[in-house]
Design a protein around this nucleic acid. Structure first.
Length: 117
DNA sequence: TGATTGACCAACT
DNA sequence: CAGTTGGCCAATC
């Protein structure tokens, strides 16, 4: 494991989110380690625009499935548009059937960790 | 170098 | 049931 920065670790997970799926800040933080907090994930997203790669931050929402950071996409409705572009319905800044689209890295990447070993 | 902040979460009052 | 507080840790002022 290269000494990736905290940001890059978060980006790696976000980039692994499949099409039409979403995850939460807390889940990513929990996957990175119990010592990490969800705030760090949000911080990484804020600086995601500085990252050379495109970070699909629109696939990351808070625990309630609400588009908390929609304003950081350069517009109040950009995030929703991106989600709807992936067949994800958004109503009142909240993802419809959020539980259905939820993609937990702690579970999905768990198999990948064992496989990678 | 100390203080502040931050796209969060959970518990407590 | 709504508002407040604490925690978590790194980056910025």
């Amino acid at each position: 494991m290269p000494d990736l920065s905290f940001f890059e670790k978060v980006y790696e997970i976000v980039l692994k989110i499949p099409y039409g799926k979403v995850t939460t800040y807390g889940s990513i933080a929990k996957y990175l380690g119990a010592g990490k907090s969800a705030r760090m994930v949000g911080w990484a997203m804020n600086k995601s625009h500085t990252h050379p790669k495109q970070i699909p931050a629109h696939r990351v929402v808070n625990r309630n499935g609400v588009l908390t950071g929609k304003h950081h996409f350069g517009g109040p409705n950009v995030m929703q548009q991106l989600l709807e572009n992936e067949r994800i319905k958004v109503n009142n800044d909240q993802i419809v059937n959020f539980k259905k689209h939820f993609w937990d890295p702690a579970i999905e990447l768990k198999n990948d960790q064992q496989n990678h070993k």
